[in-house]
């Protein structure tokens, strides 16, 4: 499926990029529709592709107690980055599962890194946006860790 500029602009990651840069991204992106229950990748998988959620809802879960139970700790929505550890060539730290039919933009991790290498202005803009998105996510994770609705909240 082809990817439009509008869809790319939905991504926080690419929000600051210009027309030309989006052309380059459109060439390496593919769009896909995934149904509820689909697993995009699983905890422990080797690094694969990077995604942006354009619509629907994807949940991140981790196995606890030796894989018998799973706890889900975040749902990703429109515009959010998914599977970013692939850019660091790390294996998957969580399982990504579609819980509401989702439309995703998919990038080969090496394609995206190459694009960033070729034009450092674009690369800087993308990395800065990723940095901001992950900083928010880190802060949110801290608040969740406080267990603020628990008995000490």
């Amino acid at each position: 499926m082809s990817v439009t500029h509008d869809e790319l602009r939905e991504a926080t990651l690419f929000a600051s990029l210009g027309q030309e840069d989006l052309d380059g991204l459109a060439r390496i992106a593919t769009a896909e529709e995934r149904g509820a229950g689909d697993v995009l990748f699983a905890e422990g998988d080797p690094p694969g592709d990077v995604y942006v959620v354009v619509g629907g809802r994807v949940t991140l879960c981790m196995a606890i107690d030796g894989g018998e139970g799973e706890t889900c700790f975040l749902t990703l929505r429109r515009g959010e980055l998914l599977g970013w550890t692939a850019l660091l060539r790390r294996e998957r730290v969580a399982t990504a599962r579609v819980v509401q039919p989702a439309r995703l933009l998919r990038f080969g991790a090496s394609d995206l890194l190459e694009l960033c290498e070729e034009d450092h202005d674009v690369g800087y803009a993308i990395m800065r946006a990723a940095f901001e998105e992950l900083a928010d996510r880190l802060q949110h994770t801290r608040v969740q860790l406080l267990d603020m609705y628990g008995t000490k909240g």
């Binding site: 949940t59 879960c61 706890t71 889900c72 700790f73 975040l74 749902t75 929505r77 949110h140 969740q144």
Partner: peptide, 19 residues
């Protein structure tokens, strides 16, 4: 509605309320 953590069967939002 959002929750801080859930089992995979939960179809709703997970994450802090400000999201």
């Amino acid at each position: 509605v959002t929750v801080d953590r859930a089992a995979p069967s939960w179809r709703g939002h997970i994450g802090v309320v400000t999201r």
